[in-house]
């Protein structure tokens, strides 16, 4: 299986502080991967680099069969290439309805002219309806997103991510603030998505990671410390020292 995303030898520093240090990472086209690491390990910065928010000082980031370099693309272009990102805090457009939020995210032409000429078709409505059902928001479509509960916002954001039909999903702490039942549903959904596309989950919660039952990459001080199954990495002495050792 060829890699969908290849990050090689990437370093970035802020004011002399090396947030990412010669990081190398790759993920296949249909794979679920969890990234764990203590605070300040560089998890968020890693996502920022892949999504184009932060430009690395050195290294290469390529994506897809043609190995397109992501470093020269803007955030919007990277998103259009097929990388979706879910933020830690749910960020939905609170002033707009759930349906509007989903329509915004639907895969379609993104240029101003085409958006201006865009009219909603029945197929789009069906897609919106299906996504809403999938995340349990079918009854809330006409409501303003700001009125949703925290968990519902998380779901809405996941639905928006799916609506984009990305090839790679970067998901930052999806389980935060969710009830146990919701977590289970999230796990289910993520593993289901990962059958057709690549999913990277950044997570703090070991329990949730165990549930995902996937390959784990441990980051520490901006570099990969260990990689493998959860059992494998938890037995790694380095990992125990820097991460588990501290609880």
């Amino acid at each position: 299986m060829s890699a969908l995303l290849e990050v090689s030898g990437v370093s970035v520093s802020f004011d002399g502080f090396r947030a990412i240090n010669n990081l190398t990472f790759s993920i296949g086209t249909a794979e679920l991967r969890a990234i764990i690491g203590p605070n300040g390990a560089g998890k968020s910065t890693f996502m920022d680099i892949v999504t184009g928010k932060t430009k690395p000082d050195s290294g290469a980031v390529t994506f897809g069969e043609k190995s397109t370099s992501l470093l020269k693309l803007s955030e919007a272009q990277i998103a259009r290439v097929g990388i979706g990102r879910k933020f830690q805090r749910p960020t939905v457009f609170e002033d707009q309805t759930v349906a509007e939020n989903l329509i915004l995210a639907l895969k379609a032409a993104r240029s101003p002219w085409k958006v201006l000429a865009w009219r909603i078709k029945s197929i789009d409505l069906e897609k919106v309806q299906r996504l809403a059902v999938q995340v349990g928001l079918a009854d809330h479509l006409p409501r303003k997103a700001g009125e949703l509960s925290h968990g519902q916002k998380q779901w809405l954001e996941i639905a928006m991510l799916l609506a984009q039909e990305p090839r790679l999903l970067l998901v930052d702490e999806p389980a935060a603030g969710m009830t146990l039942a919701e977590r289970e549903r999230t796990t289910e959904l993520l593993t289901q998505i990962a059958q057709t596309r690549a999913v990277v989950v950044v997570e703090h919660d070991m329990d949730f990671v165990r549930r995902l039952n996937c390959r784990v990459t441990v980051l520490h001080e901006g570099a990969v410390l260990a990689e493998g199954s959860l059992e494998h990495v938890t037995k790694n002495q380095d990992v125990i020292d820097v991460y588990l050792g501290r609880g």
């Binding site: 999504t51 928010k53 803007s74 955030e75 919007a76 272009q77 998103a79 259009r80 979706g84 990102r85 933020f87 960020t91 457009f93 915004l104 995210a105 993104r110 240029s111 958006v115 928006m160 984009q164």
Partner: peptide, 10 residues
Amino acid sequence: ARVRFLGYSV
């Protein structure tokens, strides 16, 4: 920023 990550060129 969120709009950018949806693929729209802000």
